[in-house]
Amino acid sequence: MFLTRKAEFSASHVCRNPNFDEARNLAIYGNNANPNGHGHNYVLEVTLEGDPDPVTGMVFDLRELKEILNQEVVDPMDHRFLNHEVPPFNQVIPTTENVATEIWKRIEPRIRRSNVRLHNVRLYETGDLYVDYGGES
């Protein structure tokens, strides 16, 4: 059975490679490379797959899942400039793909149980663009 929990955070970022010149950054990242950054209302949908616990009837305690998402994602990232305030984005370019991968790394170890696994991280950068990450390398 699949269970999905949603969380939101608003943050700013800039996608620029300091080793590239302006034209190359623009070609790769478009207006995401504008030097002073810009913001998004990110929407995160985390999907777990597992069997309901025979005693509790739950795949995962939703209150605990909410706490994990708050501690690992919302508290550190909400109303922050990702590049300046949220490692590893001082070194890793915070594309939507890289932010989704980082979220997976942060929450997966805290979700994994004998009866449940993290199935998918969906991260909306805007209503018109999202990525899905299932832990593949």
């Binding site: 996608c15 490679n17 070609a27 790769i28 990242y29 478009g30 995401n32 594309t95 793909e97 890289n98």
Partner: peptide
């Protein structure tokens, strides 16, 4: 795969 620029595809 995510490329060396951190993208599945160039948005432009």
């Amino acid at each position: 795969p995510v490329d060396e620029h951190g993208q599945v595809a160039n948005r432009s």
